[in-house]
Design a protein around this nucleic acid. Structure first.
Length: 430
RNA sequence: GCGUCGGUGGUAGAGUGGUCAAUUACACUUGGCUGUAAACCAAGCGCCUUCGGGCUACGUAGGUUCGAAUCCUACCCGGCGCA
């Protein structure tokens, strides 16, 4: 019996409600998975999770590898280390390849280590015949540019990562030191982190990337998936304790998406990760166009939506059969003053809330709304008190976990469509 | 009373004859945030505008100058020192 498996309880068209069984407990799906990048949901201690409807969380391989890996491992893995006795996940670090590298601009920064520098350091294999593997490095690769950390350059979003077929060479955003991830290395680190569910190392793309770029990243992701899976399957101990999800890519191209789902779906993974980057800056339909791929997956395979977390997108994803969603939206928006309400998002620091003594969201059962007013949270933001972002994050997390449990209930009751339409009507203010 | 230093936009504080409607920070107004390099980032922030520009502004009132927040005079206000 695989350590991670999904039991589907009810379906409503493609939407489904189920139970995702993991070694550390069951997750009722659809479920929202808060992001705990560095082994904490920013601002929220684990004792608070139950009151926020949190069933599981996802930590990050890249960040924990750069700081804290040994301590996490010796502390018994991500879950035990943070004193959370529920299921956990880890992301593979593949997204950082994107966000630290190809995702930022098209101009190579002089901060970026060159391939030859990396090779000199024994960090990179020469990708034969691929001087320009992604076709996006229009910087001058031949001039000598030292891979030295420079805060100004770092904060101006220079690229910190270079991809080749073997893996990714990158410089730490913390101290500029050189590192290298391969699929094998990512899996080994994730074994040490010990989450119930972890992801194969992939290459994430932006929906705006060209067909050629998407195809190349997808094929590389498939090759890496195979290597990730094989590395995992060779570790018999880890196989009994952890499930591995493969990630599909393909950008906005339906043929690539479907091909990716078929390929990854038939490799023997314990679940499927819907890959990509669905920020609105890439348009309003990047998620929509990616979701069709899910119909190519084997029946009953669990699906995780990576980085899908706006309420509309969770509803959209759930409608297409996504079981779990992770996203930074509740915590990042919360810290920055953006709060979810049934009637849409509000900016709590804005002047209109100064004397509003009603709760953030009328009828909300979260600890913040049960105990505090908009005026109070507004005041905490204005005075830059740390409690403001904490209360805001708690509310937002609850909002999204509640949305997922409402979706689940509506599917079990055969009312998903009605619930979805009614929620969106109120949320969008129509 | 005498001497001295100083009075700049919501605040602090630059500027010390033209490139100044005035650097910068904070405050303020608003927008953004989708597998977290994010307790972050961005825009706006005298009035009017056909967006070319126009008008009023650097304690108050005069003056010098082609031109003044910047120089001069008087006055008002504040700090400090001496009586």
């Amino acid at each position: 019996m695989p350590p991670v498996r999904l039991t589907i309880e009810a379906k409503h068209s493609s939407a489904r409600a189920g139970v995702l069984h993991t070694p550390r407990g069951d997750i009722l799906t659809p479920a929202f998975v808060p992001v705990a990048t560095k082994a904490d949901i920013k601002g929220i201690e684990s004792a608070k999770f139950p009151s926020l409807g949190v069933q599981t969380l996802i930590a990050n391989t890249y960040h924990l590898y750069l700081s804290g890996l040994d301590a996490v491992e010796k502390g018994g893995g991500v879950a035990k280390f943070m004193n959370w006795n529920g299921p956990t996940m880890t992301d593979s670090g593949g997204f950082q390849v994107f966000s630290l590298g190809t995702g930022f601009g098209k101009k190579i920064s002089k901060f970026t280590p060159e391939k030859k520098d990396l090779q000199q350091n024994g960090l990179a294999k020469a990708p034969e015949g691929s001087e320009d593997p992604r076709g996006s490095f229009d910087g001058d690769l031949s001039s000598s540019a030292p891979a030295v950390y420079d805060e100004d350059l770092a904060t101006s979003h220079g690229k910190l990562a270079i991809v080749d077929d073997e893996g990714v060479s990158f410089t730490s955003h913390l101290d500029g030191s050189l590192h290298r991830f391969t699929p094998e290395r990512s899996v080994e680190i994730q074994h040490r982190l010990g989450a119930d569910i972890f992801f194969a190392f992939d290459q994430c793309t932006a929906p705006t990337d060209s067909y050629e770029e998407q195809k190349e990243a997808m094929e590389r992701t498939h090759a890496w998936a195979k290597r990730s899976l094989s590395t995992h399957r060779q570790n018999l101990d880890a196989n009994t304790k952890q499930g591995i999800y493969g990630i599909g890519q393909g950008g906005q191209f339906d043929d690539l998406r479907r091909e990716s789902a078929r390929t990854i779906g038939n490799m023997g993974f314990d679940g499927f990760g819907l890959g990509g980057s669905f920020s609105r800056k890439y348009g309003d339909h990047s998620l929509q166009s990616a979701l069709a791929m899910l119909t190519e997956l084997p029946e009953g395979m669990s699906v995780h939506g990576l980085g899908v977390g706006e309420p509309e997108d969770i509803l959209l994803g759930a409608a297409h059969g996504v079981d779990t969603f992770d996203c930074v939206t509740p915590t990042r928006n919360g810290r920055n003053g953006g709060l979810y309400t049934k009637r849409g998002k509000i900016q709590i620091p804005n002047a209109e809330h100064q004397y509003d003594y009603s709760p953030i969201d009328e009828g909300c059962q979260c600890p913040t709304c049960q105990n505090h007013t908009r005026a109070y949270v507004h005041h905490l933001f204005r005075t830059r008190e740390i409690l403001g972002p904490i209360l805001a994050s708690m509310h937002n997390i609850y909002f999204l976990t509640k949305l997922c449990s409402d979706i689940r209930e509506s599917i079990l009751n055969g009312q998903f469509e009605q619930f979805k339409n009614s929620f969106l009507e109120t949320y969008k203010g129509n």
